[in-house]
């Protein structure tokens, strides 16, 4: 199980690095956990990466867990179809 702490200032400015990190994490063994303790919200660039990562995990029959998501983040995920 790999845990990634999503930084508070995550945004399109830092998304390239985040993206690379996720590619690597998805390849590792075990499920993937994204801890949003520090990040209240994200922007669309980040959300796209999350969506793609989710898809990649499913392909590999892994689970992508979202931890400590704020209400705001949950709303954003709803808008992007990541949550119901």
């Amino acid at each position: 199980m790999t845990v990634i702490n999503v930084p508070a200032d995550i945004s399109v400015k830092k998304v390239k690095e985040f993206h690379r990190g996720l590619i690597e994490a998805v390849d590792r063994e075990g499920d993937l956990v994204l801890d949003f303790n520090e990040a209240e919200r994200v922007d669309l660039a980040v959300m796209q990466v999350l969506l793609a990562a989710g898809r990649a995990c499913r392909k590999r029959k892994k689970v992508l867990k979202i931890k400590a998501a704020s209400e705001e983040l949950k709303n954003q995920m709803r808008i992007c179809g990541m949550l119901k």
Binding site: V12, Q48, R55
Partner: peptide
């Protein structure tokens, strides 16, 4: 609501600085 994700590429091919939705 309908979010169109069709243009979103695979994680490896994704260019995170582009909008696909």
């Amino acid at each position: 609501k309908r979010v169109n994700l069709k243009r979103l590429p695979e994680l490896e091919e994704l260019d995170p600085e582009r909008c696909y939705l």
